[in-house]
Nucleic acid binder design. Sequence first.
RNA 1: GCCGGGGUGGCGAAAUGGUAGACGCAGGGGACUUAAAAUCCUCUGGGGCUAACGCCCCGUGUGGGUUCGAAUCCCACCCCCGGCACCA
Length: 827
Amino acid sequence: MADESQAKDAPSPSTPPDPYRPSVVERKWQATWEEQGTNRFTEDEFRSAPDPFYNLMMFPYPSAEGLHVGNIYAFTGADVHGRYQRLRGRDVFEPIGFDAFGIHSENFALKVGRHPMDLIPSNVANFTRQLRRIGGMFDWDHTVDTTTPEYYRWTQWLFLQLFRAGLAEQKEAPVNWCPSCMTVLANEQVVAGLCERCDTPVEQRRILQWFFRISDYADRLLDNLEELDWSDVTRKAQRNWIGRSEGATLTFPVKDSSESIQVFTTRPDTLFGATYMVLAPEHPLVDRIATEERREAVESYRAEAQSRDVVARQKTDKSKTGVFTGGHCRNPATGEDIPIWIADYVLMDYGTGAIMAVPGHDERDFEFATAFDLPIRRVVAGPDDDGDTPLQEAYVGPGRLVNSGPFDGLEVEEGIRKITEWLEENGGGEVTTTYRLHDWCISRQRYWGPPIPIIHCDTCGSVPVPEEDLPVVLPRVEDFRPDDSGTSPLARVESWYRTTCPECGGEARRETDVSDTFLDSAWYFLRYPSTDTDSAPFDPEITRRWLPVDTYIGGNEHAVLHLLYSRFVTMALKDMGHIDFEEPFTRFRAHGLIIREGAKMSKSKGNVVVPDPIIEEYGADTFRLYLMFLGPFEEGGDYRDAGIQGPFGFLKRLWETVTSLDPRSDDAPPDPQVERQLHRTIEQVTRQLPELQYNTAVAALMEYLNAVRAGGRQAVRAEVEPLAVLVAPFCPHIAEEIWERLGHEGSIFDADAWPEHDPALLKDDTITLAVQVNGKVRGTVELPAGATEEAAMEAARAEPNVARYLESGTLRRVIHVPDRLLNLVIN
RNA sequence: GCCGGGGUGGCGAAAUGGUAGACGCAGGGGACUUAAAAUCCUCUGGGGCUAACGCCCCGUGUGGGUUCGAAUCCCACCCCCGGCACCA
């Protein structure tokens, strides 16, 4: 009997014949992608791709612990974006690499007693395995590892270009110095003013460092921000960091001397209230101004200021300290002699390192003047004040000038202009702009970085290593601990640093400092498409075709430094004629942070999500889908262990729906209601994916599958086939498998199969209109779409609950929002 | 202190002037099972009224305002998270 044979073949309900086995599906497709080169570009393809889309994500530091969920979250979000673009037909290049130089690697290597040259390759191998496992669309033929000579050769090349352009220079700068370890510490190695290793109080030391003159580019870096399609938070952070401040530089002649002191102020209008001057302790004029009888006090204060670490020096919550120098200068406005002090609340590296103190109208000066009993004078009167109103605190609000001679009565804004003009005419001042942004210190007295390619020669000075001699290879040094010299461990390797001068051939010495990791990452996006080239850092033709980066996704912790340095390097390279664009990242989006069960994840709390076992159990597709579903991608979300069940169930149902399709219904038309919802889903997902609104797009997909399966109905092919494509950016493996099972050959990502929605199908024929009385919903009525107000009124009156309210008062007004609501205002 | 972001059911979250709580988790009830797991169906903001169908009130951090109508806009305040922090 036919029934019998069917029964034999039919699966028993408890053991489905073909359950969803993520690991099988995922292994299969990862192997297929690898074999077919699905995600890889050849050099020819790079040169000829018709519609390039450069999809970049911030490359990771390959820690020994392996990929963190935070990394996976970021990479998945970026990968979804890249896969979406590819499904829309773009030629998407999605590279990944490793940012493996720097103090983290070095400290970890010291801690575990292994050499970073051994450690890093094994970390990279582990990261690579994990990155392949999550199913990113990475081009594994074009990766970079910043610690390989093939890469840092060009980092050194970049240094040389900047050096030649006059953008690299050596100058003295303070560093954190641990007198017990006798070594230079990075800011993060100083904890509450103490060395993190030995708890000794940290001091400052001035040593010669290499700087890039990024501040030359401050205006351009700031002004270009207007035009960039970047997250607002990120642009704002950069604006604050650059900190452009318009003001004036004023000159105060020192009494009984030919010297004068320059100060920067944004409030030249308060000049008449300047009752004393303050210099930074390091200010070069201090020696010449301090009088004999004050010299001892001045010297000991300077020594004390220097004995603090660089971070503690700038704490705002400590009380003001300072000493009188014994010197005076003349206030050019009042003609008065005012005392010159030194205090560490004035910073040498902002403005001119000196201020005119106006205690009446500056909180810091007020605090200082109160502490040292210096005169406080009101020169701005608020709306209820006059020139004699006493000051209980600094007044920083708007008002009119008082006690300011000819300028009395002017509003602050006008006073600023008039007093500046007056000083300019008398040679006592000029309009100036200063920046918070400092030059970029790129030297590190450390081992684990690319050596700075400079040779020091007694006759020729600092000579660049000839480009053909690059890379200057970082030698393998077994003892790479920092030492008591205040220089890099490389300074102990005489065989390495002794060399000859490329210019005069005489004896010379290599620079032994290495460069900042931020330099490695400031140009890596230029290298990715050109890793096939070893004759140049980046191929001009390929670079023209692929850059700038179309979308860059990464953490906002790099909002300032990394992104700013990359922009600076790009601008400098453009000015030197190496590239033809000056902004590296057309679009940047910052992703949010993942927390776990309401708390920040941290190793010490032991609440870190370990990805491998989760991927093992549920598969990468489920894990990816869950991460994207947690919350808005740009805001982050709360990882709750149980939550993964939702996305997992969704994929199991998707699988079941496809594998149980009846081939005889392949040509059947979709159910009209389901079809409408399909088109609404296509519309929503297509709109939201490029905007990174993943969580709601996933919800729409779930809703659609629920509709397809509602009441246990049997789906037809036309209802589920588009779903395979829509889900593919999130879950590439299962999408490929379903696509293949639906009878397609080749990768879904090459199928040009992204569905188009039909606008005519977005709306239902009948709609539910909410009927309100005085703004409160009192009922709903079913109406044909586009019904008139009259039709809506008629239906509303027929609704008993609405009618009840209408009878209780007089209808005053009707507000009709077609197809949405009807609000009846009664009294 | 300054600059961002945020505060909505038991929980993650939707909704950016028009039916608050889509989607999902957790939980309750039911089906299947010898049983459990898995799966499927169904209910689920709080309170009240009703035999029931239903209906009413309250509800988006707090207090005010604008509006026919506010989670959404405006004013004041509280709290949480992130960044910067003596920048003259």
